[in-house]
Amino acid sequence: MRKSLLALALAFSATAAQAADIVMHRSEGCGCCLKWVERLQSAGHEVKVVNEADMRAFKVANNVPMRLSSCHTALVEGYVIEGHVPAADIERLLAERPDAIGLAVPGMPMGSPGMEHGDMVEAYNTYLLKKDGTFEVWAEHGRS
């Protein structure tokens, strides 16, 4: 009976992480941001879009290091998601729940979610943003 309850709890946690509500903030008119939203929705997430008049101020208020910034910033369950972070990385973050600010994919790497262009894929990293201002590689993408 206990194993069944544990399995049920773990399945519910994984489902909850996958179906997390995300609020994405962006500058109005940025098309790749909306493509990123489409990728997350395809992965089962609900995403609300908010247009910000001053994205830089929003990023500063949410502790996003400018050297790791991108075009949009999302918030999910107390975490910051900066840029074109893949859904699987967000789901892992929500499953593992590290004591951190969130995740970032700096810039706009070709082939990242929302930045697809044919079969071109640029190697890029997703970084874990730590509360002490440091960061580390959370996941590597686009490498053979």
Rank of each mutant, 00 (worst) to 15 (best):
Ala16Asp: 07
Ala20Thr: 07
Lys35Gly: 07
Ala104Glu: 10
Asn63Cys: 02
Ala100Asn: 09
Ala57Ile: 05
Leu40Glu: 10
Gly102Thr: 08
His72Tyr: 04
Gly83His: 05
Met66Val: 12
Ala104Lys: 03
Arg26Ser: 11
Ala43Asp: 09
Val60Phe: 03
Ala87Trp: 01
Val47Gly: 06
Arg92Phe: 04
Ala88Glu: 15
Ala14Asp: 06
Val85Gly: 07
Asp54Ala: 11
Ala16Gln: 12
Ala57Cys: 08
Arg56Leu: 15
Val80Cys: 05
Ala57Ser: 15
Gln41Asn: 14
Gly83Trp: 01
Arg39Cys: 12
Asn62Leu: 10
Trp36Ser: 08
Glu38Leu: 08
Glu28Lys: 14
Val49Asp: 01
Ala104Arg: 01
Pro98Gly: 06
Ser13Ile: 09
Arg56Ala: 15
Ser70Asp: 05
Ala19Arg: 10
Glu28Cys: 05
Ala74His: 02
Val37Pro: 01
Ala16His: 11
Ile90Glu: 04
Pro86Ser: 02
Arg56His: 14
Leu94Glu: 05
Gly78His: 05
Lys48Glu: 14
Ser27Tyr: 06
Asn63Pro: 01
Thr73Ile: 09
Val50Asn: 06
Leu34Glu: 13
Ala53Arg: 11
Met55Tyr: 07
Leu68Lys: 01
Lys48Val: 12
Ser27Gln: 14
Asn63Glu: 14
Ala57His: 03
Ala100Ile: 10
Val60Pro: 04
Ala95Arg: 12
Arg92His: 10
Val76Tyr: 03
Asp54Val: 12
Ala57Glu: 15
Asp99Gly: 08
Val80Ile: 15
Val49Gly: 11
Ala87Pro: 13
Arg97Thr: 12
Val49Ser: 11
Asn63His: 14
Val76Thr: 11
Pro86Trp: 00
Lys48His: 07
Tyr79Ser: 10
Pro98Ala: 02
Ser27Thr: 15
Leu68Ala: 10
Glu38Trp: 00
Ala95Pro: 04
Ala19His: 13
Val37Gly: 03
Ile81Ser: 04
Ala53Ser: 14
Val50Pro: 02
Ile81Gly: 04
Asp89Ser: 15
Glu82Leu: 08
Ser42Asp: 15
Arg67Met: 13
Ala14His: 06
Leu75Val: 09
Ala87Gly: 09
Val64Tyr: 01
Ala74Lys: 02
Ser42Met: 12
Arg92Glu: 13
Ile90Leu: 13
Val49Ala: 12
Gly78Asp: 06
Ala16Ser: 13
Glu82Thr: 08
Cys33Met: 09
Gly44Lys: 00
Pro98Leu: 02
Glu46Phe: 06
Ala100Glu: 07
Ile81Asn: 01
Pro98Asp: 02
Val37Glu: 03
Ala20Lys: 02
Ala14Pro: 02
Pro65Cys: 13
Arg56Val: 15
Ser70Met: 07
Leu34His: 08
Asn51Phe: 11
Lys35Val: 07
Thr73His: 04
Leu68Trp: 01
His45Ser: 11
Leu93Arg: 03
Arg67Pro: 00
Ile22Gln: 04
Glu82Trp: 02
Glu82Cys: 11
Ala95Leu: 15
Val85Met: 04
Leu103Gly: 06
Ala14Lys: 06
Thr73Tyr: 00
Ala88Pro: 03
Gly29Val: 10
Lys35Ala: 15
Gln18Pro: 00
Glu82Gln: 09
Glu38Cys: 05
Ile22Asp: 00
Val76Asn: 04
Asn51Tyr: 06
Ala61Gln: 07
Lys59Gly: 06
Ile101Gln: 02
Ala87Arg: 00
Ser13Ala: 15
Val23Cys: 10
Ala17Met: 07
Ser69Trp: 00
Ser42Ile: 00
Phe58His: 05
